[in-house]
């Protein structure tokens, strides 16, 4: 009797803790939505009572209508894809160059002493400062935009990779030497996997930077992309479309970050630093 009561209680407790877990999961979705609703409400009220015209400060409902229009006529999709393509191209180019260079700089002290000052000198120059040269060298179209994104991604990535490569636990190299790894094996089986967790973190930050720069890059010399959408809509005095463009940038930014965050699940050993 007593025992069965205890049993029932423990079952109830289990159920309760499941509920708490479920509610905790739900809180992660509900609470941001609450904040969003409050902001939208404040926005709507401001536009309604501030006396600003809809041309200057469109209401959320108006922006939503604008988004509907742009979705229906396919412009939103077209511009998003154009921007994503440029970011992807520039980002991949940066990965291809930055990671091998970073590894070499991290492991070869002489080259690091030679090149690190050059990199540190170029790094703080905003990619936007390169716009005149980019247009001069690559003309108009996708190329200069991709180049700017490449620059924006390259420097943080090369620095992060070099730091990670330098910080590899020396024990791993002794193990490699003990089992007679050659240089190629040491690179692919020790260096690359050892820097992977740090590089993934850097990639996550870098893709955000690339996405930040693409909009600016698209304000020159191209006729597509979310940056172009914003610029073009401003020229047409459609502030609702401008805001749709901004929102889309934010949404895709969240999606990209989430995607990069999930990369650690590719391999079970990636979820911790070494």
């Amino acid at each position: 009797m007593n025992r069965s009561a205890t049993h029932t209680r423990s079952l109830l407790m289990e159920r309760a803790s499941e509920l708490v877990g479920w509610r905790r999961g739900k809180r992660r979705i509900v609470l941001p939505l609450v904040a969003l609703a409050v902001i939208l409400l404040a926005w709507e009220l401001t536009t309604r009572y501030s006396g600003w015209s809809a041309q200057v400060f469109p209401s959320p409902s108006r922006v939503m209508r604008g988004m509907g229009e742009l979705i229906v006529n396919g412009m939103l999709l077209r511009h998003s894809i154009a921007s994503l393509f440029r970011v992807t191209a520039g980002f991949y180019l940066a990965i291809i160059f930055a990671i091998p260079i970073g590894i070499v700089l991290g492991r070869v002290e002489t080259l690091n002493l030679m090149l690190n000052p050059v990199i540190q000198f170029l790094r703080p120059i905003s990619p936007l400062a390169w716009i005149p040269l980019a247009v001069l060298w690559f003309g108009i179209g996708d190329k200069p935009a991709v180049f700017l994104i490449f620059l924006a991604c390259f420097f943080p990535l090369v620095v992060a990779t070099a730091i990670a490569a330098r910080a590899i636990n020396p024990v791993f190299f002794q193990v490699a030497a003990n089992f007679k790894f050659n240089r190629w094996e040491t690179t692919t089986k020790v260096i690359v996997p050892a820097i992977m967790p740090d590089v993934l973190t850097a990639l996550r930050l870098t893709v955000g930077i690339g996405w930040l720069v693409v909009v600016a890059a698209e304000m020159l010399a191209v006729r597509s992309g979310l940056g172009y959408l914003i610029l073009d809509s401003r020229n047409a005095l459609r502030m609702d479309y401008v805001m749709v463009g901004m929102m889309m940038i934010g949404l895709i930014g969240i999606a990209l970050d989430d995607l990069m965050r999930r990369l650690v699940y590719l391999h079970p050993a990636l979820q911790r630093a070494y």
Binding site: F172, Q174, N178, V190
Partner: peptide, 20 residues
């Protein structure tokens, strides 16, 4: 003259490669 599989070292803290 150098490390060799003929004399294997077992490390004080783990010498396992954590990604394997």
């Amino acid at each position: 003259v150098g490390p060799s599989p003929n004399h294997i070292f077992v490390f004080q803290h783990s010498g396992l490669l954590p990604w394997m």
